[in-house]
């Protein structure tokens, strides 16, 4: 009992418990940065709805699975990435794609809203459940609301009705957009090959744009 306790609890705590922010990039920027505002609250929406029961947030090492080939990250995930997570949602099953870098891959908020309201409206054959309770259905008064979902065809609401996201939906999308962990770290440098270009890209704000060419559904 004592040996197991030491090996599985004490020793990992001694190694990982004292982790601090790292200095990264040419400007010695601090990484990771704690989430604030809606993105911070969105993590609670993610937790309370059990999103981690279908989605992981961990890019496995290159050569172990196909996470790199699917474009889920430029480097494997590291413990450092989760330093400021209040509830670490690494996940244990992939019934949906990995979300470690979804903030880089899918940068359109409107896409996320429509996808949460009805996943099949964006991904044909998706097994993800709908989250209509994160949205409000309301009659259109005058002109449509600026944040009304753009749904077409079979997914469009009845005439005179619009679908708008609730506060929880906004926070959840803000959280999803904040999921970015491609900054090269000492323990997880970017793989050889396109390292120079990728490193420069991942360290900059332009990383999102560089990743948008990755397939949405891989």
């Amino acid at each position: 009992m004592a040996v197991t306790w030491y090996g599985m609890l004490v020793a990992p705590s001694r190694q990982m418990g004292g982790q601090q922010q790292a200095n990264v990039g040419p400007g010695n920027e601090r990484y990771p940065i704690p989430r604030l505002g809606p993105a911070h609250r969105g993590a609670e929406v993610y937790r309370s709805n059990g999103c981690a029961y279908c989605h992981t947030q961990q890019v496995r090492p290159q050569g172990y699975g196909s996470d790199f080939e699917r474009g889920w990250g430029l480097r494997m995930s590291a413990a450092q990435d989760f330093l400021f997570e209040e509830t670490v949602a690494l996940g244990q099953v992939r019934m949906g794609p990995d979300l470690a870098n979804v903030g880089f891959r899918l940068t359109d908020e409107a896409w996320h809203y429509a996808h949460l309201y009805n996943p099949k409206s964006k991904v044909t054959g998706s097994l993800m459940p709908q989250y209509p309770f994160l949205f409000k259905e309301q009659p259109i008064k005058g002109s449509p609301s600026g944040d009304a979902l753009v749904l077409t065809g079979a997914f469009a609401p009845p005439t005179g009705v619009e679908i708008v996201p609730t506060k929880e939906a906004r926070e959840l999308v803000a959280y999803l957009m904040s999921l970015k962990s491609q900054v090269p770290l000492f323990e997880t440098p970017l793989p050889a090959g396109p390292k120079q270009d990728a490193e420069a890209t991942a360290s900059s704000e332009g990383a999102g744009n560089a990743q948008t060419n990755l397939a949405l559904n891989r």
Partner: peptide
């Protein structure tokens, strides 16, 4: 506990 240590435990 902080970070990924939660996942271990």
């Amino acid at each position: 506990v902080r970070g990924a240590l939660q996942f271990v435990i």
